[in-house]
Design a protein around this nucleic acid. Structure first.
Length: 478
RNA sequence: GGACAGGUGGCCGAGUGGUUUAAGGCAGCGGUCUUGAAAACCGCCGUACCUUUACGGGUACCGUGAGUUCGAAUCUCACCCUGUCCGCCA
């Protein structure tokens, strides 16, 4: 969400910045909406003030038993009423239109973010660790997984559908070890507090981080069917009662009643009260912990980490990465979230990226750090670093982490503020999030980088404390 | 799922149609007194928006939304949430 005051003050700069994200100039439209909104509000406030003053006089007149004066004043107020009603509706309409327009715009890129509209313009900042050389041709993770019998794609399809996988046995253990290792690293060495947040969230939470209103189609949603049934039953009973006339007069009374109840049923299934979104990342619940708060700046930074399942519809990715478990509807991820005062987010962004990089360094996986260009960032971000891990089976670097500084863009949506000790003025916090890391992809990276010629996978040293003696993932039995 | 109670500023808490401009207290901040501290006393102490060069002025907000009224924290309706007890449950 953007600050309309800032747009008002520097419209050209705003248009130039959103142009870098491929959005057409909008400041003129927004400013005009804002002008109408303020005009309505100013007049409304004035009339309301007049009404309040007159009402008070009525009270005084009545206390003095001066009914004639009271009646006179009441007539005066009545004259204001119509205009007041119109202005209220106008003000609300302009305000909603403005908020809606503002909440659909992506964040402005930071000054040091390169221009460009897609990943071709991303800038490689550094490479860490050199890809190993293999005396054999490295396999891709799905061949390794199926060869071991520990990655069952057919079972995933049977149980759920495409883009679901069942990971088994020693590989499942290895994935769990990866998650534990990451959480331990972030909590003990980087000061993050481990959390277990809800994986289903409401509309307000999904709006706060920017999934709604624009990107609802990328999410899975659930409905509380029992609650819907209950509401529908209550509706049906009163609906039939209220439409008894239909039963005797209409040509097709039953049809009319069925139509009414069907319409209500359809409405209830989309009622936000009964709908929960499956989180696409733990960023969503963790960041929203700050929603509607005024946090004392002495408490900041807040640093949270969580290992959760993440759910994504991958609607825009048809045909991409269909083999294997690179791109799944459900995957595990350790997420990092920081809530900081506005003057600290730049340094926190570097720190968070370092935490994510440390995971790959300790696992001794080669990777490169990318600075995303303006057009390739997510809507909430003002600046993003991607970590791309080397996959010898695929012979390329693949994204495994994305660390973003969102500035105050999410904070404005969430109304998340902070206040310096002794200060009166509140400021919007800055929010940051990063994967530390995507656990499913880390499993793939370990498999491909630590594979042996016989198809077994050596366990990285740093994971050995977590695997209960297992040092090599290999096929057991026949 | 059943029964009851409740939702007021950072916290506690009064307030059932008009001097409420939300009492009072706690916490916090400033001051007087004191060598210093405590106590006592005095003062300040919610958020957002509109307006003004500024000083200032105004409006909204008492869980949310609608309604009644000249006027709503207060009355009406719906919804949300919380607590307690009972039932069921991983």
């Amino acid at each position: 969400m953007h600050d309309i005051k800032l747009i008002r003050d520097t419209p050209e700069a705003f248009d130039r910045a959103i142009a870098r994200r491929g959005v057409a100039p909008l400041s003129a439209t927004l400013i005009e909406l804002d002008r109408k909104r303020r005009a309505a509000q100013t007049e409304f406030d004035e009339l309301q003030g007049k009404r309040n003053a007159l009402s008070k006089e009525i009270g005084a007149a009545k206390a003095k038993k001066d009914e004639a004066r009271a009646a006179e004043l009441m007539a005066e107020v009545a004259a204001l009423k119509e205009r007041l009603g119109i202005l209220e509706v106008e003000q609300k309409a302009h305000e909603e239109a403005l908020t809606d327009a503002l909440s659909r715009l992506p964040n402005l890129p930071a000054d040091d973010v390169p221009n460009g509209l897609d990943e071709k313009s991303n800038v490689e900042l550094r490479r860490t660790g050199a890809p190993k050389t293999y005396s054999f041709k490295p396999k891709e993770h799905f061949d390794l997984g199926e060869g071991l019998g520990y990655m069952d794609f057919a079972a995933g399809v049977k149980l759920a559908g495409a883009r679901f996988t069942v990971v088994k046995s020693q590989l499942a253990r290895l994935e769990r070890a990866l998650g534990q290792f990451m959480l331990d690293l972030h909590t003990t060495e980087f000061g993050y507090t481990e959390m277990q947040p809800p994986m289903l969230v409401n509309d307000a939470t999904a709006f706060g981080t920017g999934q709604l209103p624009k990107f609802g189609d990328d999410l899975f949603a659930t409905i509380d069917r029992a609650a819907v049934s209950h509401a529908l039953k209550e509706f049906s009973e009163s609906f039939v009662d209220n439409n008894k006339a239909l039963l005797t007069s209409a040509a097709q009374p039953t049809l009319e009643i069925v139509k009414g109840i069907t319409a209500e049923s359809r409405r209830l299934l989309n009622d936000p009260r009964f709908r929960y979104w499956l989180i696409p990342t733990a960023e969503v619940p963790l960041t929203n912990l700050a929603r509607d708060l005024i946090i004392d700046e002495s408490e900041l930074p807040w640093r949270f980490t969580a290992l959760t399942a993440c759910f994504r519809s991958e609607a825009g990715a048809a045909g991409r990465d269909t083999r294997g478990m690179i791109r799944q509807h459900q995957f595990n991820k350790v997420e990092l979230v920081s809530i900081v005062s506005p003057d600290r987010s730049v340094e926190e962004h570097e720190r968070m990226t370092e935490a994510a990089e440390t995971v790959l360094k300790r696992l001794e996986l080669p990777f490169r750090t990318m600075l995303l260009c303006a057009g390739d960032m997510g809507g909430a971000a003002r600046k993003t670093y991607d970590l791309e891990v080397w996959l010898p089976g695929q012979d390329q670097y693949r994204e495994i982490s994305s660390c973003s500084n969102c500035g105050d863009w999410q904070a404005r949506r969430m109304n998340a503020r902070c206040r310096a000790p002794g200060e009166k003025q509140t400021r919007f916090v800055h929010t940051l999030n990063g994967s530390g890391l995507a656990v499913g992809r880390a499993l793939i990276a370990v498999m491909e980088n630590y594979q042996n010629e016989d198809g077994s996978i050596s366990v990285p040293d740093v994971l050995k404390p977590y695997t209960n003696g297992l040092t090599k993932v290999e096929k057991v039995g026949k």
